[in-house]
Design a protein around this nucleic acid. Structure first.
Length: 265
DNA sequence: TTCCAGGAGGGGG
DNA sequence: CCCCCTCATGGA
């Protein structure tokens, strides 16, 4: 253990809950350890007794990345009395919403469309060079054909066009920061491959806007089972936003994790 | 083998 | 506006 390490309690950060709840893709599990890459940085996570250790060469970056300034006990306490939270939160009580870099998040969730998590992970691994996720300029150089060869399928032109829009400055990813979630979503949806659901994921994971509720196939499944009625994504989103309000993003992560757990549905 | 996956784009009605 | 179809890929 060195001064490069960040140490906190296991209750404050559960490694599996946080990395395997579908918000991030560039991680690998090595038994008791997890290796994680973000932008051009990396870290190793593991437990030492009752502590979580984040071993990296940039402790300050990862303290922000893991959102260590936020009190999740307070958030969970506020959510606990709301529908399904007393069931869902205990299944993944150590989740933290990561503060990921917007460009990496945009591209990652364009790739996520109609795709499996293991396959999303492998595609992102192939477009990354070793530790570093490509910059907009680097990714813009990939042709549609090269992206197709890397296994992106029908998303090849989405990634190509979006990377070019951002690299050329036609789309300013920093302009999103100060916008309301509604205005930000509308803007993000002008990017090819970004629809309402992907925009919600980008806003939650890339801009830490928590008044959104990404509705994917798992949330739909859970909604139909738990609420006992059918609904399309737009209706489900509105209903759940009304329930969870500004904490919707957190509630969504607990529900998503629960939806994929055999102990929940 | 068929179904499905953290959906979006596009055409037709 | 809504409904329906298509879009690659590979794990289960």
């Amino acid at each position: 253990m060195t001064n490069r390490d960040t140490i906190l309690s296991k209750e404050q950060l559960n490694i599996k809950d946080t990395l395997e709840c579908g918000q991030v893709f560039r991680y690998t599990n090595f038994g008791s350890h997890y290796a994680l890459k973000a932008q051009d940085k990396s870290c190793i996570l593991y437990y030492s007794g009752n502590n979580t250790i984040i071993e990296s060469d940039d402790a300050e970056y990862f303290r922000n990345y893991f959102d260590l300034a936020t009190d999740y006990q307070d958030i969970k306490a506020k959510l606990y009395g709301l529908p399904f939270m007393s069931q869902a939160i205990p299944l993944a009580s150590g989740i933290r919403i990561l503060r990921q870099e917007p460009f990496e998040t945009i591209i990652s969730f364009i790739i996520s469309a109609n795709n499996h998590i293991p396959r999303i992970k492998s595609i992102i691994e192939r477009i990354s060079k070793g530790q570093a996720f490509p910059t907009p300029q680097e990714l813009a150089k990939f042709s549609v054909e090269e992206l197709r060869a890397l296994g992106l399928g029908f998303r090849d032109r989405y990634v190509h066009n979006t990377a070019n829009d951002i690299a050329s400055g036609r789309f300013d990813i920093n302009s999103i920061i100060g916008m309301s979630s509604q205005a930000a979503s509308k803007n993000l949806c002008t990017l090819q491959g970004v629809g309402a659901k992907v925009a919600d994921c980008i806003l939650l994971f890339g801009y830490h806007k928590t008044d959104v509720f990404p509705v994917d196939t798992w949330i739909k499944k859970t909604y139909n089972a738990k609420f006992g009625q059918e609904g399309d994504a737009k209706q489900i989103r509105k209903l759940l936003l009304d329930i969870y309000g500004d904490l919707s993003g957190y509630a969504q992560q607990y529900l998503f994790y629960g939806a994929r757990s055999k102990f929940f549905i």
